[in-house]
Nucleic acid binder design. Structure first.
Lengths: 180, 180
DNA sequence: CGAGTATCGTTGGCAGTAACAACTAATGTC
DNA sequence: GACATTAGTTGTTACTGCCAACGATACTCG
């Protein structure tokens, strides 16, 4: 055990350096892409979150409100309101669930699918322009790396029990507010 | 030119596939990390955007409101309000700019720096845990890829003239709202 | 069966995010 | 010194996101 501990300590220095670099790089990436999404998606008729919801419904098919919330990592109340907006704008609709009178089935309308596909095409087109400057061999690798990172982050940050989060180790003092 | 065009067409198929895969992977990554940030940062006393602002001021030093807005890719009015919150909570302060009576100099307070460093340490620690499962050779590569992607996206999505965005080619019809 | 409990989704309330437009005050420019 | 420009703030609107409370339905077990 002491050997392992020593080794782990040795690794820690470089690991922390890497973690810091990754953190910094990811911050930048997130910022730019959030900006891009605001900028592009909001040129149309819906907000970014609304578009994510539309995407989820369009790609994965009809869904209950709760599973949509889980997929989007949103609170159920937020999901209700996001769907409200989509319904109001005619891009989604709610149907009663025949199996459970409490639940609703959410699905996209034809207009919703059309809009989603249009936005999606544009976003992908933008990625294509960006990738065009990359070495073809790197392109695939980049996606692989992102996917791996996303998977790892999903597993680690979105605590196993699906919705429950903020494990006891969260922060050290001012945790009370949201994690109490 | 026709040869180039033909070649470009040939490339387009694989390029589009790659773009689609990247788009999808990035969507997931963004979603998980946004969730993580909400979850971790909001355990403390500030919101995600407020933390980004704090970070910018702590890492890059005092700054005018406008350059902070540019760095965060936010509207100047949003920036004003984000800073309002930080000032109210005692993490930042505004000082008059001796060179220009219209401008203000924004800087973090000691409490602000302390809070930022604490949050930052935690976020980096989380990345380290995540990276621990990665092959050491891959770790560095991952960061490189993310950095490259962020740079390319910055250059491409954040149109050259710093703040001006939504070029004429944006979307095709419903552009009016924000880009008119 | 029927009381108690759990779950599904909605609503209310609050703070924050984000944009555009209009505005004030200070600078520049001619 | 008039006129446009720039820096930052404020007003307005819509959306995000959380927690808590609620009504309605479903489950459970005595």
């Amino acid at each position: 055990m002491s050997r392992t501990a020593a080794k782990s300590l040795l690794l820690d220095a470089s690991l922390l350096r890497d973690a810091e670099a990754l953190h910094s790089a990811l911050s930048g990436l997130l910022r730019v892409y959030q900006f891009r999404d605001r900028d592009r998606i909001c040129c149309y008729d819906i907000s970014v979150t609304q578009c994510y919801a539309l995407e989820e419904l369009a790609e994965k098919g009809p869904s209950r409100s709760q599973s949509l919330a889980e997929a989007l990592l949103l609170d159920k109340s937020t999901t209700t309101r996001v769907v409200d907006a989509l319904v109001r704008k005619g891009y989604a609709k709610r149907r009663p669930d025949p199996d459970d009178a409490r639940a609703v089935i959410l699905c996209v309308t034809a207009a919703g699918r059309k809009l989603y596909e249009k936005i999606n095409r544009e976003l992908i087109q933008q990625q294509a322009e960006l990738l065009r400057d990359f070495d073809p061999g790197l392109r695939n690798g980049a996606t692989k790396v992102i996917e791996g990172l996303a998977r790892a982050a999903q597993a680690r940050f979105v605590s196993g029990v699906s919705v429950g989060r903020c494990d006891p180790a969260c922060g050290t003092d001012a945790v009370a507010a949201r994690c109490g």
